[in-house]
């Protein structure tokens, strides 16, 4: 039972910050996803408030199951399959090409900026 209660503070805090972020983004009409504001707020809390570290177990639980939360979005893909099939080759080339370019550019920029690791 103790294991279950350990995740409660983190779950509540992350839900609260996600809702607060959404409310803030809507109120100020900020062009960013509200949850991202919640992420930044949570990072500040973790850095500045030692007690916030008690929320670790709940937050880690959410991160571990993030993949399951993406399944409903991916199931929505069935409607776009004809569009995707019609452009499969150029899309595949684009995905492969830009992924390799991005990886190389990142590694190269690290060196260029004086990274030694």
């Amino acid at each position: 039972m103790r294991g279950i209660w350990a995740v409660v503070p983190g779950l509540l805090l992350c839900v609260g910050l996600a809702l607060a972020g959404q409310a803030l983004a809507a109120a100020l009409q900020l062009p960013v996803p509200g949850a991202v504001l919640g992420l930044l707020a949570y990072l500040l809390l973790l850095l500045l408030v030692p007690a916030a570290r008690h929320t670790r177990a709940g937050a880690a639980l959410l991160v571990r199951w993030i993949g399951a939360m993406l399944v409903p979005a991916l199931i929505g893909l069935h409607a776009a399959l004809p569009l995707l099939a019609a452009a499969a080759l150029p899309v595949m080339l684009l995905l492969v090409g830009t992924t390799l370019v991005t990886a190389l550019a990142t590694a190269w920029l690290y060196r260029l900026a004086g990274g030694r690791g």
């Binding site: 992350c14 839900v15 809702l19 509200g34 992420l39 930044l40 937050a59 959410l62 939360m69 399944v71």
Partner: peptide, 22 residues
């Protein structure tokens, strides 16, 4: 299914917040 899975989809917001941990 999409309508039924709404709670799971909704949890993505809190999970994104939790990525601050990383």
């Amino acid at each position: 299914f999409a309508a039924a899975a709404t709670p799971l989809r909704w949890l993505l917001g809190p999970a994104l917040v939790a990525l601050a941990l990383v």
